[in-house]
Computed example of a mutant assay.
Amino acid sequence: MSVTKQYLEKGSDILSVVAQQESKIQEVAKLFAKSILAGRMVHLFGSGHSRMMVEEMWPRYGSFPGFNPIVELSVSFHNLVVGANGQRQAMFLENVPGFAAKIMRNFDTSKEDTALIISSSGCNVVPIEMAEEFKERGIKVVALVSSLHLEGSTSKKSDGKKLTDFADYVLDTGAPLGDAMIYLDGLDSPVAPGSTLGGVLLINCLKAEIAKILHENGKSPKVLSSGKIVGEQRAVELFESAYDEHAHLMAKLYQNIGNKK
């Protein structure tokens, strides 16, 4: 069997893992939709390559406001690889205790908010502490992890706790321990990871389910759409109105920062 067919076969297995979580995906979608219907936001966080899942949710074509993509460049900017802003620094910072609290100091959250934390291993300090910070604020947390990788990994947090210890719901990408899925004869390290594949499937299933709930409850989402589908003028109107709605939602997260409650 060719390596392409091997990867596609393993990808099919991942699709099956995601499909088996349909009822949980729908539960999480209801939770997130409730925040958006209340005029609040779903906070998204992922360090390292989990940042891709954050940006997959919003903003891009087929997406809509209601999400706060928390992307810290210091722990997710990989393009330079070495030198200033290199990968070594990002991987180090990803495990610095207290960093999450500094991130969260920027936001005035509400118990009506919800959060999605993405981490393949669920064992790096910053994503774990982000979940812990949300929980301390009374916010429900959903963890998106690779269960086999999490179970086979050791937490880098001093108390040994993992991301799932602070999650109300857990979604599984279906990727294997170590993430990479293809083994080649004579090469001891596998290639071609699978967590992104499973993560993108989960994100877009959630996105579709949330949109359905919003639409059925009289809050049809302002979806970023191609002019080839809705017409050029309508596409521009949707982009502008969606960005405006996002700005208004974000404003709520800043208005009471630093005020004692």
Score class of each variant (00 low, 15 high):
16 S>E: 11
232 E>G: 00
255 Q>A: 04
173 T>D: 11
35 S>E: 02
174 G>V: 12
164 T>W: 07
111 K>M: 06
148 L>P: 00
68 N>M: 14
222 K>H: 02
195 S>V: 13
95 N>V: 03
131 A>N: 07
254 Y>I: 05
216 E>K: 09
89 Q>I: 08
23 S>M: 03
98 G>I: 14
251 A>H: 11
106 N>I: 07
83 G>T: 05
14 I>A: 05
30 K>I: 08
162 K>F: 09
49 H>T: 08
107 F>N: 04
176 P>G: 12
43 H>K: 00
192 A>N: 01
143 A>P: 01
164 T>E: 10
67 F>T: 03
74 S>K: 11
10 K>T: 03
230 V>L: 03
56 E>G: 00
48 G>R: 00
5 K>P: 03
39 G>I: 07
60 R>I: 02
150 L>E: 13
195 S>K: 12
70 I>S: 07
150 L>G: 04
214 L>R: 10
56 E>L: 04
249 L>H: 05
63 S>E: 02
104 M>T: 15
49 H>M: 10
220 S>E: 11
180 A>H: 10
14 I>D: 04
64 F>K: 06
242 A>C: 10
143 A>C: 10
143 A>E: 01
52 M>I: 14
166 F>Q: 02
66 G>N: 12
132 E>C: 01
13 D>Y: 14
134 F>Y: 12
72 E>G: 00
180 A>F: 05
239 F>G: 00
14 I>Y: 00
126 V>R: 06
189 S>Q: 07
30 K>F: 06
182 I>D: 09
105 R>A: 12
26 Q>G: 04
210 I>W: 01
31 L>E: 13
158 S>A: 15
93 L>K: 06
226 S>Q: 05
91 M>D: 12
192 A>E: 00
60 R>Y: 01
185 D>H: 08
216 E>G: 14
254 Y>F: 15
191 V>L: 15
7 Y>P: 09
45 F>R: 00
233 Q>I: 15
96 V>M: 06
49 H>L: 10
97 P>M: 13
227 G>W: 11
215 H>S: 15
158 S>P: 01
218 G>E: 03
113 D>W: 00
49 H>R: 14
126 V>W: 04
1 M>K: 02
179 D>P: 08
218 G>M: 07
98 G>F: 10
67 F>Y: 12
60 R>W: 04
35 S>Q: 05
247 A>Q: 14
162 K>C: 11
12 S>A: 14
195 S>M: 11
220 S>F: 01
125 V>S: 07
238 L>E: 15
94 E>C: 11
239 F>Y: 10
66 G>M: 03
152 G>E: 14
243 Y>A: 14
32 F>H: 13
192 A>P: 06
144 L>H: 07
125 V>K: 04
184 L>P: 08
221 P>W: 01
134 F>I: 04
225 S>K: 08
61 Y>A: 06
121 S>V: 09
39 G>S: 06
74 S>Y: 07
140 K>D: 13
161 K>A: 07
251 A>R: 09
23 S>I: 08
126 V>A: 03
73 L>G: 06
79 N>M: 09
73 L>N: 07
209 E>T: 00
61 Y>M: 10
27 E>L: 11
19 A>W: 03
146 S>G: 10
102 K>F: 07
203 I>T: 05
182 I>A: 08
90 A>Y: 12
